[in-house]
Design a protein around this nucleic acid. Structure first.
Lengths: 159, 159
DNA sequence: GAAATATAGTTAGTAAGCTAACTATTATCG
DNA sequence: CGATAATAGTTAGCTTACTAACTATATTTC
């Protein structure tokens, strides 16, 4: 596994950043593992992590324009275009031009997306349960609270 | 900001997954915000999040083959190829064929990478400090511990 | 020692992610 | 009303991520 490279007279960079001590390091890794695990679970159903998130928001809100959906997903509208293109290609969603504002396109889940969605919820619950194994309810609660704090710290103005 | 779409006779998907209650939801968002904040900080120095991570590991280990580096970064070797191609193009690293095993290529940081690295460490420390504002040392410690637990839960076998 | 197997790196194809620039609408201001 | 500004969606160009298939070396096995 760890092939242990000796790194003899290594031209090491001067400064050293102990990133294993950083919350960012562990947060990024854990989040990566979560997305990985969920992706693996979703793959057999022919759907990706982001596509599942789209269906999730549509399940909550029913029908959304692309900017509104992008803002909920915390991604750029331009990024969403590609995701929706592929979902439309696969018959999971449809785009309808809004009558009141012809710039807007309303996204809604197709009938066959409903079949997929039921299974997706299963996958999500499974991973979610696996993630918190060995943690008490109190710990999970504190964990989520801290995550919200961190998110708030970094989200604000982000400059 | 929130344009509030009424979603009148919305064809809602049957089941509903309350993902705002899931640790995954908050973890992914917080991690995203972290990478975003760091990327913004790094951008003026012409370096990306992943490229900074490469330099970080080279600072720790001195010289690494691509598989070893990829395994430390928790990404696929094939993904690393592109990252290193761009870093080599930008003169940040060099690839040297190992004498003992001609399949291996040892990656080392270039002299000019050292100048960049000093500034990168600054950026990383800044974001890291901002992330934990309003949290006690105890809370941060518990947070990291929980993240490690979650990572362990999800990493194992991931099937 | 030659054949089979494993390993290191690469390429190709697909799915995201971003910014910046563009088109088509709608809203606003004078 | 008409010019200007704002907004919704898209496209183009770049970086990152994956899997699967490929090439070149090393290692194992017979």
């Amino acid at each position: 596994m760890s092939t242990k490279v000796p790194a003899q007279k290594s031209e090491k960079l001067g400064d050293r950043y102990d990133f294993e001590e950083s919350v960012g390091y562990w947060m990024v890794l854990a989040s990566q593992a979560y997305q990985h695990a969920l992706s693996n679970e979703l793959a057999p159903h022919g759907i990706t992590f982001r596509q599942c998130q789209v269906l999730g928001w549509l399940a909550v809100e029913g029908e959304l324009s692309q900017v509104d959906l992008a803002s909920r997903m915390m991604i750029e509208p331009a990024t969403l275009v590609g995701v929706l293109d592929r979902m439309q290609r696969d018959g999971l969603i449809c785009r309808t031009s809004a009558a009141v504002d012809r710039r807007r396109k309303l996204i809604c889940a197709s009938p066959q997306a409903k079949d997929v969605w039921a299974q997706v919820v299963c996958c999500a619950r499974k991973i979610r349960a696996r993630a918190v194994v060995g943690l008490t309810t109190t710990q999970v609660k504190a964990f989520k609270k801290t995550l919200r704090t961190v998110l708030g710290n970094l989200d604000a103005l982000s400059g």
